[in-house]
């Protein structure tokens, strides 16, 4: 058996290894280049009080979550109880970014599902969404005391995400500086 005749087999096996590993990956989750960068600034109208605005700077000095949601988004409903639970335990302030939604629908939705948000701001035309690289709802950003994005979760969060990913990071960030 000459070595050169084994080359096709070797190439194929390497390929098969990658393909097998590929089965465990999710091709639709795209990591954000914003992690480690300052959270893009915004000043947006509040959902419940449109004449008032709220921005990233208002959260300086705190570790907080920015949760992108909309009343038309089905999986937002799925993750909502965990947000409510998290807000209930008082562990961390959560700011809602109401994305491309209608004000009345959003207010009604919060009334029905519970309101975990310290404040909710409205991004009617989705511009701030683009600034944050939002491509699907729900998405959740973890932002530290200096206003730097530390983590982005794409898709609905669940108990596992909260306990195994978010809480440890929040604890660490809160201790720091």
């Amino acid at each position: 058996m000459k070595a050169k005749f084994l080359v096709p087999l070797a190439i194929f096996l390497a390929l098969a290894g990658f393909l097998g590993y590929g089965l465990t990956l999710n091709p639709s989750v795209v990591p954000s280049p914003l992690v480690g960068k300052p959270a893009p600034a915004f000043q947006l109208a509040k959902l419940d009080a449109p004449q008032e605005t709220f921005g990233v700077d208002d959260m300086r000095g705190q570790v907080w979550l920015l949760n992108v949601w909309a009343s038309w988004c089905v999986s937002c409903r799925q993750e909502h109880p965990y947000l409510v639970e998290m807000a209930g335990t008082g562990g961390i302030p959560v700011i809602g970014l109401n994305y491309k939604d209608e004000r009345q629908a959003a207010i009604g939705w919060l009334r029905a599902q519970g309101d975990p948000y310290l404040a909710t701001v409205t991004d009617e035309d989705g511009r701030v969404g683009i600034e944050y690289g939002v491509y699907g709802t729900p998405e959740t950003f973890l932002i530290d005391k200096d206003g730097v994005i530390r983590y982005k979760h794409i898709g609905p969060i669940n108990r596992d995400t909260v306990q195994k990913v978010l809480m440890p990071m929040i604890a660490e960030l809160s201790r720091a500086g």
Binding site: N26, C73, V74, S75, G136, G155, P156
Partner: peptide, 12 residues
């Protein structure tokens, strides 16, 4: 993971 994408055919 059923992430709700923006593709909402119903909401054309």
């Amino acid at each position: 993971m059923p992430v709700d994408r923006f593709v909402r055919p119903l909401n054309a």
